[in-house]
C-alpha cells in the first residue's frame, strides 16, 4: 500500500506534463523542452556529482560528443541508429576520461573535467575542423517529422533518465556511491571497489548525457562547437542540480524548472525595465545573486532543504507528543 502511494504523485506530475502541450503556447512548450532536456541531463550528472560526490564540471564533453555524433551520422545511417551511436560514442569516450580524472579528488577532479571539456572545445573548433566544419556550424537533421514533437522526445528522455537514476540510486550501487561520497577511503577499506563504481556511474551518466546532446542538436537544427562543448552547458547542468538538490532524486527537475522560468522571467520582465540602463546585464546579475543566496542559505538545495526541514519538524512534533504523553 505504501509503495503504491509513493507512485501516485510522480504519475500525477507526469499527467500534468502530458497536458501542457494542449494548453501552453509553442514558446512555453519549448521552455518545457529545455526543462525536460536539462533535467534529464541533470539526473545523469546527479549520479556522478550528486550521489558519488564527484564534482564534474565538464559534462559538456559528453553532451558535445553526443550532439556531434548524431549530427554527423544521422544523414548516413538514419535517425534511430544515430541516437544509438551518440549513446555508444559518449559512453566509450567516458572510459578514458574517467580513468584519467578519477585518479584525482576534490577540486583537482573538477579542474581536470573542465580541462577535458575545454580541450574538446578547442579541438572541435580548430584541429578537427575538417570533420565538424568548426565554428561555421553544421546543419542537423531533424529527429521527428514535426517540431512540436520534440516536447515529447524530451519528456520521454527525462522519464528514462529519471528511471535509470532512481533504479541505480536505490540499489546497492547507489549506496556504494553514497558511501564513496561520504568517505572514499573508508568505502575502500570496507572492500567497495571505488574506482569501478565511480567509473560505472560515469559511464551511465555519459550515455544519458550524450543522448541529451543529440536531442538538443536535432531540436536546434544546427550546431557549432560553442553551442554544445562550452562551459556554459556544463555549468548550467551543475547549477540546476545543486539548486534543486544534489544527490536527491527530484532535485534536478526542480532546479531545471526554477532556472528556466527564472531566466525567462528575468529576460522578459526585468530586461524591459528601461531605467536600469543595460537591463539584460542586470537580469544576469540577479541570476548570479540567486546562485550565491542558494549556496549560502540552502546549501542542500531546495529539495534537500525542504526534506530536512520537514524531517526536523516531524521529529519536533514527535518529541512534543512524546513529552505530552509522559
Amino acid at each position: 500500500m505504501k509503495r503504491l502511494r509513493a507512485w501516485i504523485l510522480p504519475i500525477l506530475v507526469l499527467i500534468l506534463f502530458a497536458l501542457i502541450p494542449f494548453t501552453a503556447s509553442f514558446y512555453y512548450q519549448q521552455i518545457f523542452f529545455y526543462i525536460f532536456l536539462f533535467a534529464g541531463v541533470g539526473f545523469a550528472w546527479n549520479l556522478v556529482g550528486g550521489y558519488a560526490g564527484q564534482l564534474s564540471l565538464g559534462h559538456a564533453a559528453f553532451f558535445g560528443i553526443g550532439a556531434y555524433a548524431y549530427a554527423l551520422l544521422a544523414p548516413h545511417i538514419g535517425t534511430g541508429p544515430a541516437v544509438l551511436a551518440a549513446a555508444v560514442l559518449s559512453t566509450v569516450s567516458a572510459a578514458p576520461i574517467g580513468l584519467i580524472c578519477f585518479r584525482l579528488r576534490g577540486p583537482y577532479f573538477a579542474l581536470a573535467t573542465i580541462a577535458v571539456a575545454q580541450l574538446l572545445l578547442v579541438l572541435a573548433t580548430n584541429q578537427f575542423k575538417g570533420l565538424t566544419q568548426g565554428a561555421a556550424g553544421l546543419l542537423v537533421q531533424g529527429m521527428v517529422p514535426d517540431p512540436s514533437l520534440y516536447y515529447w522526445v524530451a519528456l520521454g528522455f527525462m522519464v528514462v533518465a529519471f528511471a535509470v537514476t532512481a533504479l541505480l540510486a536505490t540499489s546497492k550501487t547507489g549506496y556504494y556511491l553514497m558511501a564513496i561520497r561520504e568517505d572514499e577511503d573508508t568505502a575502500q577499506t570496507v572492500t567497495i571497489n571505488t574506482p569501478l563504481y565511480k567509473l560505472y556511474a560515469l559511464l551511465v551518466s555519459a550515455l544519458l548525457t550524450g543522448v541529451g546532446g543529440s536531442i538538443f542538436a536535432a531540436n536546434l537544427g544546427t550546431i557549432q562547437p560553442n553551442d554544445v562543448f562550452s562551459a556554459a552547458i556544463s555549468n548550467q547542468v551543475v547549477f540546476l542540480a545543486i539548486l534543486g538538490g544534489a544527490g536527491t532524486l527530484y532535485g534536478p527537475l526542480v532546479g531545471a524548472f526554477i532556472l528556466e522560468f527564472a531566466s525567462d522571467w528575468l529576460k522578459n520582465s526585468v530586461a524591459n525595465v528601461t531605467w536600469l540602463g543595460d537591463a539584460n546585464a542586470f537580469a544576469f546579475f540577479l541570476y548570479g545573486l540567486l546562485i550565491v543566496l542558494v549556496v549560502m542559505y540552502m546549501p542542500a538545495g531546495i529539495v534537500g532543504t525542504v526534506a530536512k526541514w520537514r524531517k526536523g519538524r516531524a521529529a519536533h512534533v514527535h518529541a512534543q507528543r512524546t513529552t505530552a504523553g509522559v
Binding site: 509513493a6 504523485l9 500534468l16 506534463f17 501552453a24 503556447s25 532524486l249 531546495i302
Partner: peptide
C-alpha cells in the same frame, strides 16, 4: 517512502507553473 514529500512539492511547483502559463497564454 522518503521520496514522497519532494514529490508533493514538485506537484505544487508544477501547478504553480501551469498557473503562470495560463496567465502568459491568455
Amino acid at each position: 517512502m522518503h521520496n514522497r514529500r519532494p514529490a508533493r512539492m514538485l506537484a505544487t511547483l508544477t501547478l504553480a507553473g501551469l498557473f503562470a502559463l495560463a496567465g502568459c497564454g491568455t
